[in-house]
Amino acid sequence: MPPVVPPLPDVAGIRSRLRRDRRATFALGVLLTIATCALLAPILSPFDPNAQLDISRLQSQAPSWSHPLGTDPFSRDVLSRLLYGARISLLISFTAVALAMSFGTLIGAVAGYLGGAIDAVLMRLVDAAFSIPTLLLLIVVIALWGEVSTSALTLLIASVGWFTVSRLVRAETLAMRDADFVVAARALGVPAWRVLGQHVLPNVVGPAIIAAALAVGNVILLEAGLSYLGIGVRPPTASWGSIIQDGSERVSDLWWLTLFPGLAILVTVFACNALGDALRDALDPRQLQAAPDDDTPIKAT
């Protein structure tokens, strides 16, 4: 019986489809701009993000020429905090997602490739993990732990984020396991670990990358949520969530403390999701019929 042949990734086609997708270009542009701002925070920031500029009158000021985004109740410049906050928020979410993706891919690939008892045990563990609400779990762990450092927070977020990827990669690996070139590699005497690493993994990372792009948005929201609840990054460190937290008691009159970091979160999450969607469409096997130089749009049904 011939094995089911999974659709093969067509690298050139994917690249050209991505390039033609204006959504992808735009999203990537937005993300790069935000990342650049975060990197250049020390140059772009008009003030020290943690400096209390008017220590005698700790008061929040509305946006003005000297403070374009106003100041917070501790008299800190919001623009500077937003720029430095981008560093923390992006660092946490990208690192956490990278860790979660690597671990999830590893677990999923091993489970899918080896199959049998190992697969059953790993996937039941993942099923169990899925039944626990992530946010509640994090709140409990952090509450028990006391104050957590940024790197500990990143690890915590990563540790609850790999389940989805592991399932996804497992399914892909399962399909790849019977792909002709994988059987061929085994028939040529390639050792199992090498078959997995060299022949299976490079062909299953596509879906993991899509999941990663979509996950970054979620993790930014998660970090903001935790910081907003006061259990995320430690004050006075700025993150987008903690800036909102600083103004949370007077949202109606200190609107600039909610609006600007809120917008930053919105735009970033939106860009991540748009990029993820574009990647998914580009990798969609139903679109493989479209010739790379054919400009007629193909309607997905």
Binding site: P2, V5, L8, P9, D10, V11, A179, D180, F181, V183, A184, A185, A187, L188, Q198, H199, P202, N203
Partner: peptide, 14 residues
Amino acid sequence: SMVFQEPMTALNPV
């Protein structure tokens, strides 16, 4: 060693 039926899929695309 083995020679497979489908040369399209018996080689790793990447």
